[in-house]
């Protein structure tokens, strides 16, 4: 049983109008339970679109998306996944704990159970004493950790993330990467992760999916083997750099048909 199965999916916006965009064409992707898969590619290649299709926030034009062997629509109704975006998107009028409780409230959990789970999640993201603060009293990195806690509050087997660390500074970003790996290992969560950063994709993932635009499609899938436990030393390891090199070359390949093969717009080389 695969966690995510995308079969022959294409997504065309504004079909049949002059504004038609072939956002995705014939995409096939399978993610196994417990796997960490990153989507990388230049701006506009359809990464967010693919993530939204998996989340059933969009319907595919053709093809099929299954999550946990259910239709994407059913798994959304069952809250089989949690989601996190570039902006933490916490609700200003709710305390930190109440923000984490939001998905549980919508599911109809009772008050004690919700509070207990919120505290458990706060401990998971190592902010246990912040329960009663308001979101705007936290730093950007802390807010993002609360957003991850919210996404995981219902213990979904799958986590979908769209550039969750894109707005953070480099130091915080690397710290958050370590934290995300720890949290996912502890909770055995499958992750599909959209990023613009090659090192981030390589450091986090079992597999890096390389995409290219116009029309949006998957051009390459690169296996990364950095072992089960990664640390700060991993960032200096030989196979980390070789991983980065292979992803970079795959990304260049996506532009082979262009005159200037070196220009990879929208992908940060850091």
């Amino acid at each position: 049983m695969s966690a995510v199965h995308v079969a022959g999916v294409s997504k065309i916006f504004n079909q049949g109008t002059p504004k038609q965009v072939d956002a995705l064409v014939d995409v096939n992707l399978t993610v196994e339970p417990g796997e960490f898969v990153s989507l990388i590619g230049p701006s506009g290649c359809g990464k967010s679109t693919l993530l939204r299709l998996i989340a059933n926030l969009l319907e595919p034009t053709t093809g099929e998306v299954t999550v946990n062997s259910k239709t994407a629509a059913q798994s959304r109704l069952d809250q089989d996944y949690g989601m996190a975006f570039q902006q933490a998107g916490l609700f200003d009028w709710r305390s930190v704990a109440k923000n984490i409780e939001l998905p549980l409230e919508l599911k109809g959990w009772d008050k004690e159970k919700r509070a207990a789970r919120a505290q458990e999640m706060l401990e998971l993201v190592k902010l246990p004493e912040f329960a009663d603060l308001m979101p705007w009293q936290l730093s950007g990195g802390m807010q993002q950790r609360i957003a991850i806690a919210r996404a995981l509050a219902a213990h979904p087997p799958l986590l979908l993330m769209d550039e969750p660390f894109g707005a953070l500074d480099e130091m915080t970003r690397e710290y958050m990467q370590g934290e995300l790996l720890r949290i996912c290992a502890e909770t055995k969560t499958t992750v599909v992760f959209v990023t613009h950063s090659i090192p981030e994709a390589v450091y986090l993932s079992n597999r890096v999916v390389v995409m290219s635009p116009r029309p949006g499609r998957i051009t390459d899938v690169i296996n990364v083997n950095l072992g089960e436990t990664r640390s700060e030393d991993t960032r200096a390891a030989e196979n980390f750099f070789s991983g980065i090199t292979s992803v970079r070359e795959a990304l260049r390949g996506t532009h082979a048909d262009h005159a200037n093969a070196g220009a990879i717009r929208g992908v940060e080389d850091r």
Binding site: R76, F85, G89
Partner: peptide
Amino acid sequence: APAASLELMDSYAASWKQ
């Protein structure tokens, strides 16, 4: 209400009333 927050509520399959 920001589009991202509305999308978040959608991802929780929240009803219109919720």
